[in-house]
Amino acid sequence: MANLAVSDSEKTFIIHGVEDNLRCDGRGCLDYRHIELELGAAPNCSGSSHVRIANTDVLVGIKAEIAAPDHAAPDRGRIEFFVDLTANADPEFEGTGGDELGQQIAGALAEAYVSKRFLDLSSLCIVKNQQVWVLFVDILILELGGSLYDAVSIAVKAALYDLRIPKLTVSIGEDGKPEIEVSDDPHTQEPLAIANVPCFVTLSKIGSQFVVDVSQEEAECSTVNMCCAIAPNGRMATTMKTGVGSLHPDSLIEALQLAQEIGVALHKALHKQFVKAQELSGRTNGFLL
């Protein structure tokens, strides 16, 4: 990730603050920054969202296309993630500069969504072995301000909430082959069941404390990050350690328990916001104006 130059005394200041449960922007260790959420930010997509957490700015567009299923899962749809770190966020990402980090995030998301316990893709099957819906989830990072995984996963969940798939009718044609008819009436479009979709909660260890939603300056002070995907019911979809430091097994258990508690609360708060954002969707005049 793009590195920020933070001096030793600045780091000391941040670490001492965290020990006293007071961060540079006045938050406690386990407080999130204000999350701005907008649904339907890209009208030419089947589902889209725009999430801004302080300086972190993420735009997600989902396009649903009909394609052949995977041989390994002939009766399930597919979901594919692509993360584009734009040069707007950091000039370092120009050209292919952001590819590595992008693939890392896309991989983490794919891993979190792999189990049907969290997202049941069988509802996206149209004709077994032949045609399924493929959801192309394209994530655009417009600005970097720390806590990237969390922001991306919130934006993806919001876009899935906004997703509407056209209703299909499958009939057997004269030649015995199934014929698919796509309804063009927007009122018959169906939402996806996203009640169990997980979100990432990243806990960073600064000094001896765990901290959520770190800013870029704080990220420079953290030794190790635990990135956990938590479902609304508290189940853990995936977890990984990022960063260069190491972690005592006791702190690992502490981090996982903390992540679980925070995750459950986060999902509750998010769901309320989704409902509110849905009402406003399409009424705003472009998300940055």
Binding site: A42, C45, A87, E94, D138
Partner: peptide, 21 residues
């Protein structure tokens, strides 16, 4: 003067394979 043009993969009606290049 250094420029880069790129288009989001979801910007067009048909999904683009890659944003630039």
């Amino acid at each position: 003067v250094n420029c880069q043009f790129s288009a989001a993969t979801f910007s067009t009606a048909e999904r683009k394979r890659r944003p630039r290049g």
